[in-house]
Computed example of a mutant assay.
Amino acid sequence: MRFNTRKWVKPEDLNPNGTLFGGQLLAWIDEEAALYTIIQLENPKIVTKYMSEINFMASAKKGDIVEIGMEVIKFGRTSITMKCEARNKMTRETILTVDNMIMVNLGKEGKPAPHGKTEVEYVKDRLNND
Rank of each mutant, 00 (worst) to 15 (best):
K74I: 06
K49P: 02
N88L: 01
T91W: 00
L35C: 11
S79R: 04
R87Y: 04
V98Q: 11
P16L: 04
G116D: 10
W28D: 08
L20V: 09
V47E: 04
N55A: 09
P112W: 13
V66P: 02
W28S: 03
V120P: 07
Y122R: 09
K61C: 14
G116S: 10
T118L: 13
T97C: 04
L14I: 08
I46F: 10
N43C: 13
K7E: 13
K111A: 06
N129F: 04
P114V: 13
G22W: 07
L25F: 02
A86E: 08
E31V: 05
V98N: 06
K117Q: 05
A27R: 10
T19M: 04
G63L: 08
I54M: 15
W28A: 01
N15G: 02
E67W: 12
A58D: 13
K62E: 15
V66H: 09
M82Q: 13
G18S: 05
G110V: 08
L20K: 04
L25S: 04
R92H: 05
V104K: 09
P112M: 09
R2M: 08
I38H: 07
L35T: 08
D13F: 03
V120Y: 11
I68E: 09
E32I: 02
E32G: 02
F21G: 03
G76K: 09
N105R: 02
M82C: 13
D13Y: 06
V123C: 07
G110I: 13
A27L: 03
W28F: 04
E53Y: 12
L106G: 05
D125R: 11
N15T: 03
V104Y: 10
N128E: 15
I68Q: 08
T94V: 15
A58R: 00
P11L: 12
P44C: 11
L127N: 06
I80E: 13
I73G: 07
L96D: 03
K10W: 05
T19A: 06
E31I: 03
E119P: 06
V104C: 09
A33E: 12
L106E: 04
A58L: 01
P11A: 15
A113H: 11
I65D: 00
R87G: 00
E67H: 15
W28V: 01
V98S: 04
Y122M: 04
I80K: 14
G107N: 14
L96S: 02
N100A: 11
D130N: 07
E71A: 14
R87S: 05
T118Q: 14
T48E: 09
L14H: 07
G18W: 08
I95W: 00
S79E: 02
K89R: 12
S59F: 15
R92A: 03
A113C: 08
K61M: 15
M1Y: 05
L26S: 03
K10A: 06
M101P: 02
G18E: 06
G107S: 10
A34T: 12
K117H: 11
I73F: 13
V123M: 14
Q24D: 01
P114G: 11
C84Y: 00
I39M: 10
E71T: 13
A60Y: 02
P16V: 02
R6C: 01
E67Y: 12
W28P: 01
T19N: 12
P114C: 06
